[in-house]
């Protein structure tokens, strides 16, 4: 692994406490180092805590144990150094496309109004939304909404980009297009990316390395080096190497998905038994 570590997970534990219940371990002993400008995808069965992992880096949730370091320092409360893209976009519905993108810029020091406007325009162009600046999110398609969200996050120039199943809510065609766009944007301006997904193909297409997580409580089961050439585009999916890598990762995920399913089945059985 080249370059110094940008993000380090060191024995991270997170216990989830349901309202009025006892704490349940969601993540237990997650250790992982992500290099500067590296694109790391996290895959795993649903409920394994992969989104939780991202929320911990973002500072939305408090760690139960362990450390997360950004540039060698423990991560603090949420801030513009870590840009987040959410599965359901999280755009401000009462703001237009332009106002959404301006929001983060208005909170940055040392940018005058003209610079902010120019930056907003540049990022609107980057995600090809010229002509839609004055529309509200409710007037946009899902793919357009996510492009606004990506532009809004990138415009503040975060150090690292945290993407939480960003294309999970989109239809298959839109998802494909968005993946291509993200590849193109990322190859133009490299950034450290932590990308959570349940889609193995997506992970192999986009990432440098893939962290496969175990069923709950989530741990890193394996790290897979993708090793496909960069810059990459969609053509890569026809290569034998792509298919092979997908198979490798899928084999790892399948074991855990099975375990997760079995776990749910067992829980269901005990609950049913307890009810009787």
């Amino acid at each position: 692994m080249a370059g110094r570590s940008k993000i380090v997970f060191d024995a991270v534990r997170y216990d989830y406490t349901p309202p009025g219940g006892a704490p349940v371990p969601a993540l237990d002993g997650v250790s992982l180092a992500i290099a500067e400008d590296e694109f790391v995808a996290v895959v795993g069965p649903s409920g394994c805590g992969k989104s939780t992992l991202l929320h911990l880096v973002a500072g939305f949730l408090p760690l139960s144990d362990g450390r997360i370091l950004l540039d060698g320092r423990p991560v603090g409360p949420p801030g513009p150094d870590r840009g987040v893209v959410f599965q359901h976009f999280a755009l401000f519905p009462w703001k237009t496309v332009r106002q959404n993108i301006l929001y983060g810029l208005e909170r940055k020091r040392g940018l005058d109004a003209d610079t902010r406007r120019a930056l907003a325009r540049r990022y609107i162009e980057m995600v090809r939304l010229e002509g839609f600046e004055d529309l509200y999110p409710a007037q946009l398609s899902g793919g357009m909404k996510q492009r606004v969200a990506i532009a809004r996050t990138l415009a503040t120039q975060p150090d690292v980009l945290l993407m939480d199943e960003p294309f999970g809510a989109l239809d298959a065609q839109t998802r494909g297009l968005m993946q291509e766009e993200l590849l193109a944007i990322w190859s133009r301006r490299r950034k450290t990316v932590l990308f959570v997904t349940h889609d193995v193909h997506e992970a192999v297409l986009l990432a440098d390395r893939i962290a496969v997580m175990t069923a709950r409580p989530g741990r890193i089961k394996a790290l897979v080096e993708v090793g496909l050439p960069r810059p990459r585009d969609r053509a890569v999916i026809r290569s034998a190497a792509f298919a092979e890598r997908c198979e490798d990762v899928w084999a790892l995920v399948r074991e855990e998905a099975r375990a997760a399913e079995a776990g749910v089945g067992q829980m269901g059985a005990t609950e049913a038994g307890g009810a009787r």
Partner: peptide, 13 residues
């Protein structure tokens, strides 16, 4: 929606 508050915080609010 918690995600709206989170996203505002991440944007520096």
């Amino acid at each position: 929606e918690p995600a709206l508050v989170w996203s505002a915080r991440s944007l520096g609010a």
